[in-house]
Every structure is written in C-alpha cells, then in structure tokens.
Amino acid sequence: MHIPDGFVDIPTAAVTGALSLGAVAWAVRKSSKESGDRTIPLLGVTAAFIFAAQMLNFPIAAGTSGHFLGGVLAAALLGPWIGSLAITIVVAVQALAMADGGITALGANVLNMAIIGVWAGYGLLVLLKKALPRNLISYLVALAVGSWFSIALAAAACAAELAVSGTIPLRNALPAMVSVHMVIGLGEALITVAVASAVLAARPDLVRSYDLPRESLARTGAPRTQRRVRFWSFVVSLFVVALALAVFISPFASSAPDGLESVAIKHGAEQMAAETPVWRFSPLPDYQLPGIESETLSTALAGLIGTAALFAVVVLAGRALGRRRTGQQAG
C-alpha cells in the first residue's frame, strides 16, 4: 500500500502532505502531554517493534504473503496518538532509507496508513466496545473488526488519491484495492487479535484500550483462533469473496467519482490542461452514453475482470517476492 512517486500528482501530494503534517503535529502535542518525558523512548521502541513486526510476512494462501501493518494494534496497546506517530515514523523511514513508498507521496502514505488507518480502526474499536456486551470476546471481536476495517479503509483512501490524481479512475481502483485489502485485512485482524490476547494474558495493564474487569481474562483465557479449514476450499472461498465484493462495490463506487474527480479538476487541471491537455483525464468520458442499468453492468464487469487480474498478479508477485524474502531470512 506504499504509493510510489509519480502516482499522486502535485496538488494531491500537497493537500495530503498538509493534512498529514497537521495531524502529526497534533499527535506529537497530545502524546507528549499524555506520556511526558517517556514519549521519546516509548515511541522509539514502539516504532522499532512495528518495524520489526512488518518484516514478518504472513502467508495468505497459495504462496502469497502479506505483511502486518500494525496501526490498530499499536493504537489499542498504547493509545491512538502514540500508535499513529509510530506508524508515521515507520512509513517515513521506509520512504527515506529504503525507497519503499515515494517521497512526494509520503504525505499520502502517512495519511492512509498512519492517520486514516489508525484512527478509523481505533474509532471503530471504541464504538464497537460500547455497542457490544462488555466481555473479552466482544473486545477481541471489536479489535478484529477495527483492524480489518482499517486496512480496507486505508486501501480505499489510497484508491481515492490515485483517482483524484488521475492515475486510475475510482470505479476501477476502489473495488480492486479494497477487495484485495479486505483479504489482507483478514491476516491483519488475526495477528492483531493474537498479539492482543497474548499481551492481555500476560500484562493486561499494557493494553490501554482494554478497560474491562481483569477477572474475565483468567476465566476465558486466549481464544482458540486456529481452526481446521480445508486449505483449497479456503483459497477458493477467499477468491469468491473478493469477486463478490468487487461486483458489489463497483456499481456503488461508480456514483462516487463525480465529486472526487471534480475536485481534481478544480485543483490543478486548469493550467495543466492548457499546456498538457492529455495528461489530465476528463471527468465524464463515456458515462452518459449508455443507460443506467447497462452502465452498472459494465462497471461491475470491469471491476470483476480487474479484480481477477489483480488477484492473479498478487498471487504471482507474492510467490516470487515471498520466495526472495524467505531466502534472505534464511541467509
């Protein structure tokens, strides 16, 4: 989900950069107020922990692997301010020292992963905690949903930025990005819950967002998440879910672009349009021509084919990269 340079245009980069800068500055203030002179060592080891955790690839299926993001986990454990700052630091290091994620896209990447991802997931966790009965299982369910949602939403934000920049239209980018990350999000949710329950079992006081009576821990213990599911049926069902989501989301998404795309036009297209008319894409290329029904159908179809292709690419790339990484780890 690390957008490279060139995929977001200058206005988008500037706006996302400014938003991120503001949010991060605020987070610095709040976390220093909260943790005092412990902020720096705490933040440092948290960032190091997230960084180390992101190095661990987890297998999804068929040789594909995803890697852990950790935003909601950090927020659940240490509060959203520290969590969001730790992810910011990690994303910045990846861009500066490892060329993973563009330097002009840094604002967008921080916004997606460290701000939107962390806060949306954490917000959902807090809301669900209020809505669900107060017990350990509900807490873990809320955590799972929160971390899964944070990945999906960060992917959606990423798709929106690509669309506003005119790189990929929203009707293609959104379903594809979101559906793929809905699958990756499952891994995120599983790991987040497993880490949180391990920490809860040993040091419940270190899980800041857990405010239920401690006794319930001893009774319930860590949940059994490891279930025996037939491997290939799992792969196939993942694929079916991804496709179903793509088909379901695409028509829904096609109504959204207008607003976003018109923003893009307002932003920088005017002077750009004068000298480089072809670079910017026009907001309404061929939408009006067919009737609503067939439009829905065609966008859904496009989403479906796109998702299938993307899924294939992810599987192949994951296989190749996964092998390379395992090789490095062994060495």
Binding site: F49, A52, A53, L56, F58, P59, I60, A61, A62, F68, L77, L186, G187, L190, I191, T192, V193, A194, V195, A196, S197, A198, V199, A202, T225, Q226, R227, R228, V229, F231, F234, V235
Partner: peptide, 16 residues
C-alpha cells in the same frame, strides 16, 4: 496459509 497465522501473532505478542 492464513489459518496458521495466530501462532505468529502470539510470537509478536511476546516480542511486544
């Protein structure tokens, strides 16, 4: 595959 991931999570918990 994904179903075997929670053990990794436990390890990360210990690391945390």
């Amino acid at each position: 595959w994904l179903g075997q991931v929670p053990a990794l999570g436990k390890m990360l918990g210990a690391l945390f």
